[in-house]
């Protein structure tokens, strides 16, 4: 991992509780300007909660109990709601999984983009509107003059996601959180949206935190990957290192479960046995132990921490040296 570059955003031992259970547990990662870090994991692994915490928009039931969220030298975890409002949309923006649902159905998209600009800049409506129109050009929406006056229901899902990206980027944020940005879209539109995000990162030096469960998307766009399991980071590494040589049994099995083009046509899909544990059932040991083919008594009794395996590759497993066994099983 590229630790040398000054991290723009660093999440440090972030812990979030719901009903007393650590649903996000000591999650740490950093992201530098112009880089993309992917948080990968199954539904309920805490990746979305992590992103909401970065925006100070945790649902009422969830509470951050520990950890820091540093945007350069400001700890977002402790600033007031009033100060956080100046950060949201301006320094950190987010795009969501359901673009159409994330837009107010009764307000034109132009107004909604302009609104995002006006919240942070005291400009006239006309000026904000012109800015918004320019933004539509930047995200590649044809006929922006007309689109400005349309309502979300008149636009396709891909188009709505471009609108959301316009809203997210109009104030030139330094960090963009993309929470499953392409999950609800067609495959062809997915590629377009990913290309657009890549282009924007390159042009503007925006740091992206990409939340996804899609390994294909990760391979396409991410620089670093943090694999999350049941609220904890299992493994974190530069993308190539992770795909070439996973150092955590969960990652190895996850990668093995992605169907490949050269699989036999009728071959069974590889799966990971068992279910993600319920937060109320988190034990003292490794949370993956019950599903892990390498698990030993030690795994069930003691929680492994992330250990450095060199080249910025870190994994939280007691049996990193035995991973070859899994790769054999998987292939």
């Amino acid at each position: 991992m590229d630790v040398a570059a000054n991290p723009l955003l660093s999440v440090d031992r972030l812990t979030i509780d719901i009903a007393g259970a650590h649903v996000v547990d000591e999650v740490s990662f950093t992201v530098a300007p112009g880089k993309v870090i992917a948080l990968v994991g199954e539904s309920g692994c805490g990746k979305s909660l992590t992103s909401y915490a970065m925006l100070g928009l945790l649902p009422p039931a969830a509470r951050r109990t520990e950890g820091r969220i540093m945007l350069e030298n400001v700890d977002l975890a402790v600033i007031s709601e009033r100060r956080f409002r100046k950060v949201r949309g301006k320094d950190i923006s987010i795009i969501f999984q359901e673009p159409s649902a994330s837009l107010d159905p009764l307000t034109t998209v132009g107004e909604q983009i302009a609104e995002a600009y006006r919240v942070h800049h005291g400009v006239s409506k006309t000026e904000a509107f012109e800015k918004a129109r320019q933004m539509l050009v930047d995200v590649g929406i044809p006929d922006p003059g007309r689109r400005m006056y349309q309502y979300p229901f008149e636009l396709s899902g891909g188009m709505c996601q471009r609108i959301m990206i316009s809203i997210a980027l109009i104030c030139g944020p330094r960090v963009l959180i993309a929470d499953e940005p392409t999950t609800a879209l067609d495959v062809t539109i997915q590629a377009q949206i990913l290309d657009l995000m890549k282009k924007l990162v390159a042009e503007r030096g925006t740091a992206i935190v990409l939340i996804t469960h899609d390994m294909g998307v990760v391979a396409d766009i991410a620089d670093d990957v943090a694999v999350m399991y049941a609220g904890r980071i299992a493994e974190i590494a530069p993308v190539h290192a992770l795909f070439r040589e996973p150092k955590h049994p969960y990652t190895a099995l996850l990668l093995a479960s992605v169907p490949k083009l050269d699989d036999a046509p009728k071959a069974d899909l590889a799966t990971i046995e068992g279910m993600v544990p319920n937060p109320s059932e988190f034990g003292v040991g490794c949370r993956f132990a019950d599903r892990c083919p390498l698990a030993t008594d030690k795994c069930r009794l003691e929680q492994p921490s992330l250990v450095d395996c060199g080249n910025g590759h870190r994994s939280a497993c007691w049996h990193i040296d035995r991973l070859a066994e899994i790769r054999k099983v998987a292939t």
């Binding site: 925006l55 100046k86 994330s102 107010d104 609104e115 995002a116």
Partner: peptide, 23 residues
């Protein structure tokens, strides 16, 4: 979702209510 999205662009909850929710 649009309420959360509105807050994510820097609107206060009150502004989201007045500008979007009420209608």
């Amino acid at each position: 979702d649009y309420v959360r999205a509105g807050r994510a662009r820097g609107l206060s909850l009150g502004s989201v209510v007045v500008r979007h929710v009420l209608r």
